[in-house]
């Protein structure tokens, strides 16, 4: 004999990831580390953007570190390490996104107190990373001028979850007939309060504004936090 009935569960499918991410967020806050999760399509220029960001932050005495996710190869970690910042590669071996557990695992042996910023370069993918919290304080979605102004409308989940949008390769805007105003309007249609930076990792355009924003955010975070370096 058996009977059928309905059991209420009300459980988040990604509860385990969310709990791990919450733990990471507390660790970052306690250590005064500004954690940023960078998401974009493959080829947007996340690594070039990050290379310049790390290099310039170090030039002004800031202490950034980076984790970089890819399906395979440690090419990106090697590129980023040239900046002198501590960098670790996360290979997902086919998985299309980073998860909080991978972040925790790859932080082992690092003293978070030694850093001001932790940049997490996600796997190039605009769909899957949107569901996975990595404990970041700021989520950044990047799009390049070569991808078209309507990218935010095509991938609303990720752009809606982003605090900041970075438009990359702005030096190519003219050749690509990129309509800046339309792109910005599309971004704001999906996330009205999004902050937008137009940058070129090649020429350095937009980097002074971006870096001063970063330093300001870090200082705000450390002032609000319990611990300062």
């Amino acid at each position: 004999m058996s009977t059928a009935r309905i059991v209420e569960l009300r459980k988040g499918v990604l509860k385990k990831n969310d709990e791990l991410a919450a733990g990471l967020r507390t660790r970052f806050e306690d250590a005064g580390v500004l954690a940023l999760n960078l998401v974009s399509s493959p080829g947007t220029g996340k690594t070039a953007f990050l290379e310049r960001t790390l290099r310039q932050l170090r030039m002004v005495g800031e202490r950034p570190a980076a984790l970089v996710g890819d399906l395979e190869t440690d090419n990106d970690a090697r590129r980023l390490a040239v900046s002198g910042a501590p960098v670790r590669q996360i290979n997902t071996h086919g998985r299309c996104h980073l998860e909080a557990e991978m972040i925790g695992h790859h932080l082992e042996g690092w003293r978070l107190d030694d850093y001001d910023y932790l940049f997490i370069e996600n796997v190039g993918n605009l769909v899957c990373p949107s569901s996975y919290d990595l404990g970041e304080a700021i989520r950044i979605a990047l799009l390049s001028v070569t991808e078209g102004e309507d990218k935010p409308l095509k991938y609303p989940s990720i752009f809606n979850s982003a605090d900041i949008a970075i438009i990359t390769k702005i030096d190519l805007a003219e050749v690509c007939e990129f309509d800046r105003e339309l792109a910005c309007n599309n971004l704001r249609e999906i996330r009205p309060d999004i902050a937008i930076f137009e940058t070129s990792a090649k020429t350095g355009a937009g980097f002074p504004e971006w870096l001063s924003f970063l330093v300001g955010e870090k200082e705000r975070k450390q002032a609000a936090g319990v611990v300062s370096p």
Binding site: M1, T3, R5, V7, G12, S131, P192, D193
Partner: peptide, 22 residues
């Protein structure tokens, strides 16, 4: 425009219909 999202990010198991030994 509003960035204040109150619903739409859910990904949760609401309930399970089961058979159990009586």
């Amino acid at each position: 425009p509003s960035g204040d999202i109150r619903q739409g990010r859910e990904l949760e198991i609401e309930s399970v219909e089961i058979e159990e030994a009586a």
